[in-house]
């Protein structure tokens, strides 16, 4: 990690998406989100059109962060898996490496065991792919700051 930036490149995303698709297919889940621990969405696969993935990412990160503190209070370094059971849909959340969270939404067409099995496999693969990241961002456009100022000035006006 360099100076507080999380960088992800196209080739990594392509490979991560492939791993997530495989997970969805084999585990017969509805969709999967990969989120960093600060609540930014990294990528998503499956039927996510009806989901507010931005809000969900923030809430997943918040949920995981608070669960980690609970783990610490009971003397565990971390709870690596969370499972929320609903009436129709359920969600399986697992830690991927030390920086990301994989959330899988599934229903009664599959089982928690199947999802868990393939989630673990996918998490290992994604962890490997993420660890290959350099985190060295390419320099932004030289005019970035000026463009940003103009855009912000026009946006936040009464």
């Amino acid at each position: 990690m360099s100076s507080g930036t999380f960088v992800i490149h196209q080739d990594q995303i392509d490979r991560i998406n492939a791993a997530m698709l495989r997970l969805l297919k084999k585990g017969e889940a509805k969709c999967a989100l990969l989120v960093d621990k600060d609540g930014h969405l990294i990528t998503r696969q499956g039927f996510t059109q009806t989901l507010d993935t931005t809000a969900m990412s923030a809430l997943l990160a918040g949920s995981f962060a608070s669960t980690r503190e609970i783990a610490r209070l009971v003397g565990e370094p971390e709870f690596s898996v969370l499972f929320h059971q609903g009436q129709r849909d359920h969600i399986h959340i697992s830690l991927v490496g030390d920086r990301s969270i994989l959330a899988i939404v599934f229903d009664d067409r599959t089982t928690i065991g199947m999802v868990r099995l393939y989630a673990r496999e996918a998490a290992d693969r994604i962890k490997e792919l993420l660890s290959a990241t350099s985190d060295e961002p390419t320099a932004l456009d030289p005019d970035f700051t000026r463009s940003a100022a103009a855009k912000i000035d026009s946006m936040f006006t009464e």
Binding site: T5, E136, A139, L140, F144, T145, A148, I152, D153
Partner: peptide
């Protein structure tokens, strides 16, 4: 009443993007 709210937003968002630019600027 909203007074100063957008002004605050402008200031912090500009600072954050300046900071982002600085971080990504290796030179």
């Amino acid at each position: 009443d909203g007074l100063g709210v957008f002004d605050t937003m402008k200031r912090i968002t500009k600072l954050v993007l300046e900071d982002t630019k600085r971080r990504t600027s290796a030179a």
